[in-house]
Amino acid sequence: MSHDLSLAQNHAWHLARTLMVPVILFKVDDEYGVMPADELDDAEVEPLFEYDPYQGGRPAH
């Protein structure tokens, strides 16, 4: 988890390119986190961006 959005975005993009799967950058409270998109359930997180290694990043809304 990170408090810095730009750092979290950078890590999200690198994770997507490393795993070659879409990942979601999400926010919980005041922290940002990243997880593979297929693992995101209806958890209490606010998805912000989706990073697809083939198409780039886009807002999750």
Score class of each variant (00 low, 15 high):
Ala37Gly: 04
Met1Thr: 04
Glu39Thr: 04
His14Arg: 01
Asp30Ala: 05
Asp52Asn: 10
Ala8His: 13
Asp30Val: 04
Ala60Gly: 03
Met35Glu: 08
Pro59Leu: 14
Val45Ile: 15
Gly56Ser: 03
Met20Gln: 07
Asn10Ser: 11
Leu40Lys: 00
Leu48Gln: 01
Arg58Lys: 06
Pro22Asp: 10
Tyr32Met: 01
Gly56Pro: 12
Asp52Arg: 01
Met1Asp: 09
Val45Trp: 14
Gly57Met: 08
Gly33Pro: 14
Glu31Thr: 12
Glu46Val: 13
Val34Trp: 09
Val23Cys: 12
Glu31Ala: 09
Arg17Asp: 15
Asp42Trp: 14
Gln9Tyr: 11
His14Gln: 09
Asp30Leu: 07
Phe26Trp: 14
Ile24Met: 15
His11Ser: 06
Tyr32Lys: 00
Asn10Asp: 15
Leu40His: 00
Leu15Val: 02
Asp42Thr: 07
Leu5His: 01
Asp30Gly: 03
Asp29Tyr: 09
Arg58Gln: 10
Val34Gln: 02
Val23Lys: 00
Ala37Val: 07
Pro59Asp: 13
Ser6Val: 04
Gly57Gln: 07
Trp13Cys: 05
Glu44Arg: 01
Leu48Phe: 14
Val45Gly: 05
Leu5Val: 02
Pro22Tyr: 07
Phe49Tyr: 11
Pro53Gly: 06
Thr18Tyr: 15
Ala60Asp: 04
Ala43Glu: 12
Tyr54Gly: 08
Glu44Met: 12
Leu48Cys: 04
Leu25Phe: 15
Asp42Arg: 02
Phe49Arg: 00
Val21Asp: 14
Ala60Pro: 05
Asp42Lys: 01
Val28Lys: 00
Pro22Cys: 10
Asp30Ser: 03
Ile24Asn: 06
Gly33Cys: 12
Leu15Ile: 01
